[in-house]
Computed example of a mutant assay.
Amino acid sequence: MNQLPPPVRRAQTQQGTTADEYDDGPIVFRPASKDGQKARLSIQGPSGCGKTWTGLSISGGLAEGERFAVIDTERNAATLYVNDLPVEFDHFPMRRYNPRGLIKALAAAAQAGYPVVMIDSLTHFWKGAEGTLDQVSQVADSKYSGNTFAAWKDGGEIQDDMIEALMSFPGHVVATMRASEKWVLEKGSKTPVSKGLLAEQRKGIEFEFGVAAEMDEANRLRFIKSRCPSFRGLVLNQPDGARDIAKPYLDWLRSGAKEIDTSAWIDAAGTEDATPQSLLALYREVEAASALATPLMHPQTGQPTSLGAYIKERGTALKNAQQ
């Protein structure tokens, strides 16, 4: 069931918005910079390889002494390491794995101001109860007369929205994924050949992250993709996540870059003296920073939404009130 069409990125829309005003903006090229970039790191591996321990250590290093958030689908596995690692974190266990639930948890973590969120593990939102595969099966039966292929139109959107929220979280993100070894029979051979570890998530999801690594049972970590030059081709034996991974990653992200505080955008979107013109300009500013999908809790409804959708909703409401 992993042979799916590639994800399609869709613009965030909101019922009742003016698509031509917000979605048909000008194409403006700006000087490139790393301003506001955050760590996006995934670790995949089989059970017992040390994903949770290493993920917690990396998250603690990225948090630089602040408390961070852990979204736990592994039956409280992260809590077993309290007092074993020099990190402090707050913990939210999940038992149902609807991707929309992860979006809501990310919005709550963003609202609370956590500098880092760790998801342990992302696998459950793919193949667990109410995960993407389960969602597709349910939609196929209820909407498409059992046609699973047609149901991927809906399932793919749910998955894409989850990834957009994950990649747009205003802090650093560390995600673990279960993985199993992939064996193939090559042409002319009767002996299976190992092709490495295959993450138990949508095919290719590890490449959504800026840095992706895999771990084996010997607690050896190998980077399989990295935008950070320090990690390319690197293999670490029993790594110290804070020292060996978080520090060089932060040093690279901050080199020649400045921090961006998304809370200022949220405040500007909700201010009482906002106008349709100021909100459209704010939308363009957030769009230029690739932050439209930043998850947040709607200030009025308390439901998860995105920064872009919230700005658009307010701007459209104010414009309609003037007519």
Rank of each mutant, 00 (worst) to 15 (best):
A39F: 00
A257W: 08
L56W: 01
L80R: 15
Q14D: 13
P5L: 12
R202I: 02
V82S: 14
M1T: 15
E313G: 05
I27P: 03
E287Y: 08
Q44T: 05
S194V: 14
L41N: 05
K143Y: 08
T18G: 07
K312F: 00
R75L: 10
A129N: 03
E181T: 15
F149C: 05
E157Q: 07
L4W: 12
C228I: 10
G146A: 09
Q3P: 10
S194D: 07
A264P: 04
A112H: 09
A109H: 01
L80P: 00
I205L: 10
E313N: 07
I103Y: 02
N219K: 09
A108I: 11
R222F: 00
V286I: 03
G302C: 06
A151S: 12
V136L: 11
E186R: 15
A289F: 10
K319T: 00
A150D: 07
L282P: 00
T262E: 15
A293H: 06
A242H: 03
R30Q: 12
Q238N: 13
V70G: 10
I205F: 11
I119Y: 05
R178S: 06
D154E: 11
A110H: 05
F223T: 00
R284I: 02
S263I: 11
W126E: 13
R284V: 03
A291V: 02
D261S: 12
C228A: 14
A165C: 03
T79N: 13
N98E: 07
R220L: 00
L197I: 08
V139T: 07
G101L: 08
G256L: 14
A32T: 12
Y249A: 01
L198W: 06
N76R: 15
E272H: 06
L234I: 10
G256T: 11
N98W: 06
D244R: 07
A268L: 07
T148Y: 12
A78T: 12
S121V: 06
A32Y: 11
W53Q: 06
A246N: 04
A199H: 07
N320K: 10
L122Y: 04
I103G: 05
P276I: 04
N83F: 04
G36V: 04
K258M: 10
L318R: 06
G101C: 02
L253N: 05
G241W: 07
L236C: 01
P299A: 10
Y97N: 15
E272L: 09
A289C: 08
Q111Y: 09
M177D: 07
A165Y: 02
K153Q: 01
K190I: 09
A269G: 04
D161Q: 14
L318K: 07
E259F: 01
T17A: 08
Q135T: 12
F169Q: 04
G270W: 14
G61S: 13
V87Y: 06
L80A: 10
A151W: 00
A179W: 12
A179I: 05
A293K: 04
K203R: 12
K190T: 13
E130D: 15
G131Y: 03
Q3M: 11
P276E: 00
A288T: 06
Y144M: 09
G204V: 08
L4H: 14
P192T: 02
P99G: 06
S42P: 01
K153H: 04
I58C: 08
D134C: 14
G131K: 11
